[in-house]
């Protein structure tokens, strides 16, 4: 077995394992109860993709793929910053926050409550919030 074949086998195995890990993190981002869980998981998927693109640039002998990885890192960072600023502006401080968890959305919640549209969330039924608190 030559060295080239061994390198190909090694990097292909690493790529497959990274792909499986990406799928598992995607599952976590689906079941993550709050919005911050999901943003965190998206950030992790971004890091995994950067590693995969760096490995691919060696496998395909294309140097410019590393530039793509750099741009991907910048866009992933920008995504987190923009989403964070949006949600900080939406929920302004813990003092004003109501009893219900505003940014929480999931299958266990009511259908009317989602993470989009803060004013709609404020108008949710208070009785539901109390029931939800008792459930927790």
């Amino acid at each position: 077995m030559s060295v080239e074949t061994a390198y190909q086998f090694l990097f292909l195995t690493a790529l497959i394992i990274l792909g499986i890990l990406m799928g598992i993190v995607l599952i976590r981002s689906i079941i993550g109860p709050r919005v911050t869980d999901r943003i965190l998981c998206i950030n992790m998927i971004g890091t995994l993709v950067i590693c995969s693109v760096a490995i691919l640039s060696w496998l395909l002998h294309e140097g410019y793929l590393i530039d793509i990885a750099l741009i991907y890192a910048m866009i992933s960072f920008l995504t987190v910053l923009v989403l964070a600023s949006v949600y900080i502006r939406k929920g302004s401080g813990p003092a004003r926050a109501p009893e219900g968890d505003v940014l929480r959305s999931g299958p266990e919640m009511d259908a009317g409550v989602s993470c989009a549209g803060g004013d709609r969330l404020m108008a949710a039924d208070p009785a539901d919030r109390i029931k939800e608190d008792a459930d927790e």
Binding site: R34, V35, T36, I39, L40, N43, T47, I50, A54, I66, A69, L70, A73, M74, F77, V80, L81, A84, S85, Y87, I88, K90, G91, S92, G93, P94, A97, P98, E99, G100, D101, V102, L103
Partner: peptide, 25 residues
Amino acid sequence: LIIFMWLTSPTSTHFLSMVEMRTNP
């Protein structure tokens, strides 16, 4: 790439924890 990721990853984590502190009742 390493230098950029090591600079931006703590920053984004800090912003995420700030969102969590501000919005979780």
